[in-house]
């Protein structure tokens, strides 16, 4: 398993300029020493502190398997003076328990909130590990409908792919606090601002801003390295990314990708990927081509730019075609 150094602050996968290095060094000097919490067990979950009190675990760029136990998306937690909020819980109760152990290695403050950025199993199937904390489960008001209607299929697929040992203990836990537009959670000394977004990656994406450190958690509205997965609206997603590019957060945390990245560069590859699909599909539709034609050609220029491309790309093109043919 890859180990992350404590100074692994800016993880944009590009060359770091001297200025960036100096800025990062200054930021480090000005802030208390950030922590790296290695996993206790060989198969455990390790976390890095990307800003004071903000911890991120980087998921693997893989499909769920017995070996990775559904540890394939980023999961974070924010520690206030009174309580802790967890942002996404990984893809199994087993991995969720490991995440909880990582939290307990940092703080014994109560875990009061478990926030899910959207409905996908790799972000919500670890919820059960936090039931013992009796937290408020928080999500977009459309999360319950989206996850509820897909629950049976999600459980069946994950049982098959995770195997019995890693599937053990998984439960569908829907939000007990549904966010309509926005809400603020007070953790003591810092608060989290939760905002629902329009249909983009899914129809239930929620973003979270930690006001103390100006860290913006984008969930799967931002994929880096891992190919994006389209389960909402390609037009909505592209429009939302334009809006997000204008935000002024100190750093953003992707749903899949490095621990932390910077705006607006962090969004560029994903914008390019989605725009390429949209342009290719629109041209095929204009030329009277079929969905089958599109699944063989559209967006394939992006193939080398992403991990897991072969697993998700054709599905993305299918969804884009079905949406764009009605323009």
């Amino acid at each position: 398993m890859t180990k992350f150094a404590p100074h692994d602050l800016c993880c944009v996968p590009c060359q770091i300029s001297r200025q960036d290095f100096l800025r990062a060094a200054l930021a480090l000097a000005a802030s208390p020493l950030l922590r790296f919490v290695p996993a206790k067990a060989a198969e455990g979950v390790e976390v890095s502190e990307i800003a004071p009190g903000v911890f991120v675990h980087q998921g693997r760029y893989e499909l769920q398997s017995p070996e990775n136990r559904g540890d394939m998306a980023n999961a974070s937690f924010v520690v206030g003076t009174d309580s802790v909020a967890v942002i996404d819980t990984l893809g199994s109760a087993v991995a969720g328990r490991e995440l909880r152990a990582a939290i307990r290695a940092v703080t014994d403050k109560p875990i009061r909130y478990v926030i899910n950025t959207h409905m996908h199993p790799d972000h919500v199937f670890g919820n059960a590990a936090f039931k013992q904390d009796n937290p408020t489960f928080v999500g977009h008001y459309k999360l319950a409908r989206g996850l509820g209607s897909r629950a049976e299929r999600y459980l069946a697929i994950n049982k098959m792919m995770l195997g019995d040992a890693a599937f053990e203990g998984i439960e569908i836990i829907l939000p007990t606090l549904a966010v309509e537009t926005s809400t603020t959670l007070d953790l003591g000394g810092r608060s989290l601002v939760l905002e629902t977004q329009r249909t983009a990656h899914t129809d239930n994406d929620l973003t979270i801003t930690d006001t103390a450190t100006d860290t913006l958690f984008l969930g799967d509205l931002l994929f880096s390295v891992h190919v994006p997965t389209l389960d909402g609206s390609i037009k909505g997603w592209l429009a939302l990314l334009d809006d997000l590019a204008g935000k002024k957060a100190a750093r953003v945390v992707p749903g899949h990708g490095p621990h932390a990245m910077e705006l607006p560069e962090a969004l560029t590859p994903e914008q390019r990927y989605l725009a390429t699909i949209a342009a290719d599909v629109r041209k095929l539709i204009k030329d009277g081509k079929t969905l089958e034609d599109a699944t063989k050609t559209a967006g394939f220029s992006e193939r080398d730019a992403w991990k897991l491309f072969d697993h998700y790309h054709v599905r993305n093109v299918t969804a884009a075609f079905a949406e764009l043919e009605w323009e």
Binding site: R145, G146, S149, R150, E152, R153, A156, I157, T199, T202, D203, D231, G232, S233, G236, A319, W326
Partner: peptide, 22 residues
């Protein structure tokens, strides 16, 4: 293939009946 019928196909159910019949 699996899960095509029991799954909710609409990625955005609220827009599903907009323009029905077009």
């Amino acid at each position: 293939a699996a899960g095509g019928c029991g799954a909710m196909q609409a990625k955005d159910p609220d827009s599903e009946t907009v323009g029905l019949g077009k």
